[in-house]
Simulated scan of single mutants.
Amino acid sequence: MGLVKYTQYLYLIIAAAFIYDGITKLNDPANNYWLSFVIAAVSIFMFFFRRKYAKKFDDHYKKQ
């Protein structure tokens, strides 16, 4: 269960990378910058989703 606690932060790193990518693509109208922001938003959502369920499963195993 210890690895799951640390892999959720990988989503934040991915989100930061795609936010940076989207900001750099804002200056060039030929690039699709919105796709980078959508992927970043999904990564942030996945971070909170995984964090919630990791805590839920951890609490469940502590009760047993």
Rank of each mutant, 00 (worst) to 15 (best):
M1F: 07
G2Y: 11
G2T: 11
G2V: 08
V4W: 09
V4L: 05
V4S: 10
V4G: 03
K5Q: 12
Y6G: 01
Q8Y: 00
Q8H: 08
Q8K: 13
Y9K: 11
Y9G: 01
Y9T: 03
Y11R: 14
L12N: 02
L12W: 11
L12A: 02
L12C: 02
I13V: 15
I13E: 00
I14W: 00
I14K: 04
A15N: 09
A15I: 13
A16L: 15
A16V: 09
A17M: 13
F18M: 03
I19T: 07
I19H: 05
I19N: 04
Y20D: 00
D21S: 09
D21L: 11
G22A: 08
G22P: 02
G22F: 01
G22C: 02
I23G: 04
T24A: 04
T24H: 02
K25T: 13
K25Y: 11
L26W: 06
N27D: 03
P29T: 12
P29F: 07
P29Y: 01
P29N: 09
A30G: 05
N31G: 03
N31V: 02
N31M: 09
N31Y: 01
N31H: 04
N32M: 02
N32T: 00
Y33K: 11
Y33E: 12
W34E: 11
L35A: 10
S36E: 07
S36P: 04
S36Q: 00
S36A: 13
F37G: 03
F37N: 08
V38C: 07
I39S: 00
I39G: 03
I39L: 09
A40K: 05
A40L: 05
A41C: 08
A41F: 09
V42S: 13
V42N: 02
V42A: 07
V42Y: 06
V42D: 06
V42T: 10
I44H: 05
I44N: 03
I44Y: 04
I44S: 05
I44W: 00
F45K: 06
M46I: 04
M46H: 03
M46P: 00
F47M: 12
F47D: 00
F48V: 10
F48C: 12
F48L: 11
F49V: 11
R50T: 08
R50D: 01
K52M: 13
K52C: 10
Y53H: 12
Y53K: 15
A54L: 02
K55M: 08
K55Y: 12
K56E: 12
K56P: 02
F57C: 09
D58F: 01
D58L: 11
D58H: 08
D59H: 05
D59S: 11
D59Q: 05
H60E: 13
H60F: 15
Y61G: 01
Y61D: 14
K62N: 13
K62Q: 12
K62D: 13
K63L: 15
K63V: 15
Q64P: 08
Q64A: 14
